[in-house]
Design a binder for these strands. Structure first.
Lengths: 225, 225
DNA sequence: ATATGTGAAAAGTTTCACAGCC
DNA sequence: GGCTGTGAAACTTTTCACATAT
């Protein structure tokens, strides 16, 4: 009366619900390490080894991974391929996503060519800007478009995600337009917190200057100790 | 026998010690909002207003700010100029920092031109790469140098911070060289966790693909609810 | 012997709620 | 009236420690 074959389909419990937010932020890091290990030809890995690579506690790795099922084998470790697949499925990156970029300035252009996005299944399908000098120029293989064509392109390509790399002043209007065009997630590089109360829009903010300041703080405060 | 004028120098207790890490990550955000408010011509602000702008709880803002002294005035709020100065002093950004960039590829070039760094007092003094095709080319006003001149330039300019935008494979060697050249802090954009145990090197990792994956997860998991 | 999965304890963080000051 | 600063409660996250499986 064994209920399930357990190598092939581990009991994938709790899908999505009750995963601590702190765990989610580490999931992508686990994935990155697993992909690297796979490339190196390994098949199994232990929680302690993952922890060491990421500077974490081994118990934390095990608890994180156990949130969405039992993927390890006691006495042995985790199967790299299986765990990779499982995490991708949890994170929603077991499929590809169409992404647009808004803001083809300095930073936007660099982001558009960033290989890491493509490697994780994010496909850039269009680039927008509001400056007449930039519209019509090329960014990689794409021609920069006016925001006028936003709605059309978003629905035609079923785009869900947008990367925003516009000046702080423009971020609020841009996010409003993105939302009404049907975008559901924004990766925001503009140095403002985009708040859209009572909206289903999800925003992840990345402020590069903030990160550098966090570094300065850490350096200043490690000096003494 | 009043000990101190208190508008000018509020009781700045606890400098650095026992500031929660969670608070530190928000400090730079408070600073960004305060600078924006100052530019808008405001002189005072309330915890509730800051909280609203950043999507936080007002009590959290007050507790964060109270970690390093009493800067508010009951019934009134916080003095924007004074609080800005105080946070900058805590974060170590009340002075300017010399920064170098390693990796003048796609992302590195964009980061070198990012205005936000300069605006917060981070001055890019040199750019390095290890590719012969890139060495000698210009990035903004700077000529890309070989890593051979790293030690010399770091000590000549008293550089403490480095921005690393090299491929994952190179990150470990680069950080090793940076450390031995005297760098004490690295802002790492390479998609690996750079671990240097028993070292005083401070590293802040920013993985752009990881951020996009976090967004995908958040979008997938907001759908249902 | 080795490594996972997990209750329970410890540590850290957020929020409440209100005294104290303007 | 308004708003800060902060004890105490509530909640979250991490770590310990060990039963359990190979």
């Amino acid at each position: 009366m064994e209920p399930l074959a357990n190598e092939k389909s581990p009991n994938q419990t709790n899908r999505s619900q009750n995963i601590p937010v702190a765990t989610v932020t580490r999931l992508a890091l686990y994935l990155r390490e697993l992909q690297q290990l796979k490339r190196a030809g390994l098949q199994r890995i232990q929680s302690g080894a993952i922890a060491k690579r990421l500077g974490l506690n081994d118990s934390q790795v095990r608890r994180d991974l156990s949130c969405f099922g039992q993927f390890g084998q006691r006495g042995v470790g985790y199967n790299i391929a299986g765990l990779t697949q499982a995490i991708q499925s949890i994170m929603g990156t077991d499929r590809s996503w169409n992404v647009i970029l808004v803001g083809a300035g300095n930073l936007g252009r660099a982001l558009s060519g960033y290989r890491g996005f493509d490697q994780q299944g994010f496909r850039l399908v269009a680039v927008f800007d509001c400056s007449d000098e930039i519209i019509g120029t090329k960014v990689g293989k794409l021609v920069v478009k006016s925001l006028d064509s936003l709605d059309e392109i978003v629905s035609a390509n079923q785009v869900e995600l947008a990367i925003v790399a516009v000046p702080a002043e423009a971020a609020s209007i841009v996010s409003q337009r993105l939302e009404s065009a049907g975008i559901t997630g924004i990766l925001n590089f503009a140095p403002v917190t985009v708040r859209r109360p009572n909206s289903s829009l999800t925003v992840v903010d990345v402020d590069l200057a903030v990160e550098l300041q966090r570094l300065a703080f850490a350096v200043v405060n490690s000096k003494g100790s």
